[in-house]
Design a binder for these strands. Sequence first.
DNA 1: ATCTGGACATTAACCGTTTAACCCAACCAC
DNA 2: GTGGTTGGGTTAAACGGTTAATGTCCAGAT
Lengths: 351, 351
Amino acid sequence: MAIHGTSETPARFPRATASMVASRASVSVATVSLVASGKTDGRVSADTVIRVQQAIADLHYVVNRVASSLATGSSNFVILVAPDISNPFFARVIAGVREALGSSYQLLLSVTDSGQMPQLESVRELLAFRPAGLLVDAPSARLMQSLVVDEPIVFLDAPGADAGAPAVNLDVVRGAEALAVHLAERGHRTVAYLDSVTAASTFALRRRAFLAKAQECGMSPIETPRARSTIDVGSAATEFAKVWPAWQRAGVTAVVCATDTHAYGVLQVAHSLGVRVPEQLAVSGFDDLPFSAMSHPSLTTVELPARKLGRAAADLLVALIEGRAPDSGPPLMPSRLIIRDSTGGFVNGAA
Amino acid sequence: MAIHGTSETPARFPRATASMVASRASVSVATVSLVASGKTDGRVSADTVIRVQQAIADLHYVVNRVASSLATGSSNFVILVAPDISNPFFARVIAGVREALGSSYQLLLSVTDSGQMPQLESVRELLAFRPAGLLVDAPSARLMQSLVVDEPIVFLDAPGADAGAPAVNLDVVRGAEALAVHLAERGHRTVAYLDSVTAASTFALRRRAFLAKAQECGMSPIETPRARSTIDVGSAATEFAKVWPAWQRAGVTAVVCATDTHAYGVLQVAHSLGVRVPEQLAVSGFDDLPFSAMSHPSLTTVELPARKLGRAAADLLVALIEGRAPDSGPPLMPSRLIIRDSTGGFVNGAA
DNA sequence: ATCTGGACATTAACCGTTTAACCCAACCAC
DNA sequence: GTGGTTGGGTTAAACGGTTAATGTCCAGAT
């Protein structure tokens, strides 16, 4: 803070400790601790408080979270473990989590790409940092069983979770079924499903829900080899280019993609192959990413409340951490079908 | 490990401490510590080692990183601070970082969206966790000045960094200039630049480099209001839709986007407006995202070696952490122009 | 003059590891 | 038998906070 000479002192971090602050303010470290954590309710006199605060400011003292955490046995950060951070859908989940955490807890992310170290080991290591809690996206079944712990842990996107497990899920089924109904009403008879390789069980759920309902509605669903890579436009595009001839022969008039990004790839390839969407081919996805409203044609999709999911998960986690009874909010975030132009076609003369 | 009754014991984590392990193996905690960290070179007898290891396994003991970190004054994780994790470009940076860190250091991510808490404060809090090192993407100028610390810190994507500062950068200039030359050669006279709002100085650099070279090549560059939101397809699409009429009147025949995702938005809007790319309008971007090769038309773009950037930054950081002299590798990762179909048009009869 | 109580501040124990210093038995050389 | 190793282990002092318990001082009541 002192301005000496011409230039402001750059805010160096001399790693001030509480005892350094203490001696500068001529008090004990205990007092410093009290002041630093704001527990001065009648335990520290007003002028001592300002003396200590001054010293803290002068020295740029920041309490050492490591020591603090060791002493109290608790911490102020939460780790979100996820296999794929870069998914735009996931960005919204993160936003929701941060909203719910507010300023009480810091959020740290850990990418645990499936493969690598078994997820379980990786989580174990993370736990060694003694976070206040853990949010685990798309947990493996093995992980969920093994982690029935006292640790505050919340799973998200874990359709396989036991009823008792602290998990927050998306109700993809509703949306997937609505989509099947929608396509059936449009008169489609043969529909294809373009899946993702990602192991996340949420994808398996989307597929199963759609395919089942499609059958029920009297359509012939075609399951397909999965797109090569993770959730990425390019892989879906190449995959679609490869299977389209066969699909065409099979009479496919609609393709449902596991995620909107895949659908973008399909739209582009369809365009370059001269396949008209939606007249010749209806295309749809899941997620309702921002671009889906802007694409040409705009994309019919199942909206998944990503942000809400994140918020609900974090709320639950905080409740767990603080020992409060879970808010018992709806454990299933509802999905919603958004009908746009990409399925606007009329096939077989149906409505 | 004990199998009692019918079901395997789920791998609970009773938070075993070293002393619990110690008493189970009838040794001192010091010995446990030695065994746990593998420093048994002739200091611990073979059978004691296996006794302790057995106890560790039985109790699922994992050393408490908090205590360990406090005792040693060092840690085994690195925090990567970034404003926007969801950018697919950034996903590649992360991949590079993880490659370079290997298994020696864990990577944790912290999203510090500009706005919120001033970046500087936020980094200060992060430092309180005593990470082994910090990687800061797109640091504010203020942050860089204030953090001239003893802490191992590496900035990435920090074009404004002092020569001395530990920073790893992209040489966007080369690619941006190549792009300007390319467009000039194609005969374009009036080109527009669609920027991003993101404060990251790397964007400022892209714009300046392109615009300067464009002038130099005799073209009339048009600067533009920036796209509303961060790096997102949708915002670029709406922005383009809004400015296109004016651009058209001004005779714009080429638009350069700050990132490929913006370009996707432009391509879509152009398509729906009936503007033919590249015949009427050349479109290009930066980043060479995977989809850029698949889009229709395929996108001319400046490839930025994201993965390399991440790897170089992490390598440098590790060198700093371990007190080794920096490998003095090339501090500037070269960019490269990739010419595809979206700028294949011929304007004004030029070659 | 003694006792009670409140307001402030300090002491000291503790959190779970690490690690330097120390201890002890056994073995060897002289 | 004395003295030096050496392998194999333990003790105890940190690390930097937190917090319950303890003091000290002094005002006011008895």
